[in-house]
């Protein structure tokens, strides 16, 4: 009897929770997804933990690489162990600094070339599931980040902001099957839509496809694909990737596969657009 009452109670709880979930999901689907107060609260609550984890992982990773390097030096230079270890660590620190400076310099160059106001952000977590390609960054609405803001790296387009908390934002990367960016073949100006490949659920795949390319269009392997600006999210002319395969496809369109220009597996810093850069003042000829 007790078991029956228990089962009824747990089934009732299950029904309430299922109904709650269905309502929550349906409301988001109706609203076009992203940006609810609950999302923002959850994102804001989880990000400090994730940022802490990122700091610990970076620390452990640095220590581990230092240890591995130290072991290599030890085998070659037993007599000079202490000195070499010290120099090796110093050198590694300098190399890290140089690499970071190079990355930041590349970002700065991009920032100056863009017609957009941008802020830089650190990546604090990447893909955690096989179903969605997202990453979380440590900048949010307090830094001027808005929903749908373009996210860029020094090598290419990364994605767009889909959820914003006060100090963090979630980014849907272009590899996601739900992502779509207005794109152009730079050489022939053929238009299409760049999106993630369905196959990307296979661990480690990082491919894109260019959809809706007419069957007779001029596209060859090696063509550079850039943003067209037609989606009104990304400014035109940013590199998305390079064509790696062109097939006949079915019906009216070609099958075009692309490799992304952004290096997603090693992405540490990104630029996020916060608005359009004001145009320089135009002076009247008479004034000049």
């Amino acid at each position: 009897m007790i078991k029956v009452v228990d089962t009824r109670r747990s089934l009732a709880l299950l029904a309430v929770l299922v109904l709650g979930h269905l309502v929550a999901i349906s409301r988001q689907v109706e609203a076009g997804g992203g940006g609810t107060l609950f999302d923002r609260v959850l994102l804001a609550a989880l990000t400090p933990l994730s940022s802490g984890t990122a700091a610990v992982v970076r620390g452990v990773s640095d220590a581990w690489h230092g240890y591995v390097d130290l072991r290599g030096v030890r085998a070659e230079n037993a007599r000079l162990r202490e000195q070499v270890a010290h120099l090796e660590l110093l050198l590694q620190h300098k190399q890290d600094t140089v690499r970071e400076a190079e990355r930041l310099q590349a970002l700065l160059a991009l920032r100056e070339a863009l017609p957009l106001e941008t802020v830089s952000a650190h990546v604090v977590s990447r893909d955690g599931t096989p179903w969605f390609s997202t990453l979380t960054v440590d900048r949010g609405s307090r830094d001027g980040i808005r929903l749908n803001a373009p996210v860029l790296s020094s090598t290419g387009v990364v994605g767009r902001v889909t959820d914003v908390g006060p100090r963090a934002a979630r980014v849907q990367v272009v590899l996601d099957v739900n992502a779509g960016i207005g794109a152009l073949i730079e050489r022939s100006r053929v238009a299409g839509v760049a999106s993630g490949l369905v196959r990307s659920a296979e661990a480690g795949r990082a491919d894109l496809r260019l959809k809706y390319v007419p069957a007779l269009a001029d596209v060859v392997v090696g063509d550079v694909v850039v943003t067209s600006g037609l989606d009104r999210i990304f400014p035109r002319g940013l590199v998305i990737g390079r064509v790696t395969a062109v097939g006949p496809g079915s019906g009216l369109f070609k099958e075009v596969a692309m490799a992304p220009a952004a290096r997603f597996e090693s992405l540490e810093e990104v630029l996020i657009a916060t608005g359009e850069r004001p145009a320089p003042p135009v002076f009247d000829e008479g004034v000049r």
Partner: peptide, 16 residues
């Protein structure tokens, strides 16, 4: 937790 941090644009799918 998974939805909020690693999920897509519609949250609650992994929750349900």
């Amino acid at each position: 937790v998974l939805d909020a941090h690693f999920g897509g644009t519609v949250l609650g799918l992994a929750g349900l």
